[in-house]
Design a protein around this nucleic acid. Structure first.
Lengths: 146, 146
DNA sequence: CTAGGAGCTGCACCGCGGTCTAAGTCAAAT
DNA sequence: ATTTGACTTAGACCGCGGTGCAGCTCCTAG
């Protein structure tokens, strides 16, 4: 409780965002931040609510796989202020496309695996109540379809 | 066309799977393979159709983010032959859960971004045909919601 | 006054997934 | 015979995202 605006220490923020203090400092050095973090008299970081907000966004973006460089680029645009909405839009759209593609790939795989699991389940069940071909197919090929 | 069974050279396979020969050798050293690759008289790798098939699976698994160690573990189970279907099932189920979670996260983010993009689009449009508040809200906050 | 705990910096280190290089072997084409 | 090009190995190197450590300052509690 140093700064009136409820400035939080790096440890607090780390706990709050569930990341390490190392990571926090790393993000700062990698220019993910949108504004320089305040320091108290002793040179300790003193995060504002806005800082934490933005960091939360960063953590979120990391969570969906955006690389630090990408976040930094985005941060730069936001930092630059109004007038570059089009660029931000483009950046988001580009990454969004990749994410959508990834979703499709994952979805597809998940479905395949569900099938595969059903097959294995059949094998296991079959082993239990002995002898029961699921749909008659060459097993060694079915073990790794795709 | 050395071996009768259409054994393919490493370069062929690399082209076919669209990965580098380095990567192919890496996968081999990391024990992703289900069976030792044959060698011709000169010691060159000679991939069978089955090898390529399995490698295709590996590439696919990488594509959905499974780490090499995970694939190696799975390969080990497959290699071990019948009787461990339950273990394979467990491995798949575990990874599937992670993938499903990731899908949800991505989906959620994609939706948020879609909104965000709609907002920016509004800003851009507004800038074009001058003056037109979309839904009246503090812009600097809306710039990085979440 | 002193001991702890938390912060600071800078640098080394880690695992991961590849990629590249050097030095050598081999086979087919010139 | 020699060149060309695809292969072999071992090992170095890379970017990424994050951790760990050493050595320091500082604040606070006992």
């Amino acid at each position: 409780m140093d700064t009136p605006t409820g400035g939080r220490t790096i440890g607090d923020v780390a706990r709050e965002l569930d990341i390490s203090v190392h990571t926090l400092r790393l993000y700062e050095r990698r220019d993910l931040l949108i504004a320089p973090v305040q320091r108290d008299a002793a040179g300790r970081r003193c995060y504002s609510a806005d800082d934490v907000d933005w960091l939360q966004t960063c953590v979120y973006l990391r969570g969906v796989g955006m690389p630090l460089t990408g976040i930094a680029r985005y941060a730069e645009l936001v930092k630059a202020g109004a007038g570059n909405e089009h660029d931000r839009l483009e950046l988001l759209r580009a990454y969004l496309a990749r994410v959508e593609a990834q979703i499709v790939r994952l979805r597809g795989w998940a479905d395949v695996v569900a099938q595969k699991m059903a097959y294995y389940q059949g094998v296991v069940d079959g082993a239990d109540r002995k002898c029961q071909a699921p749909t008659k197919q060459a097993p060694s090929r079915a073990l790794h379809p795709r």
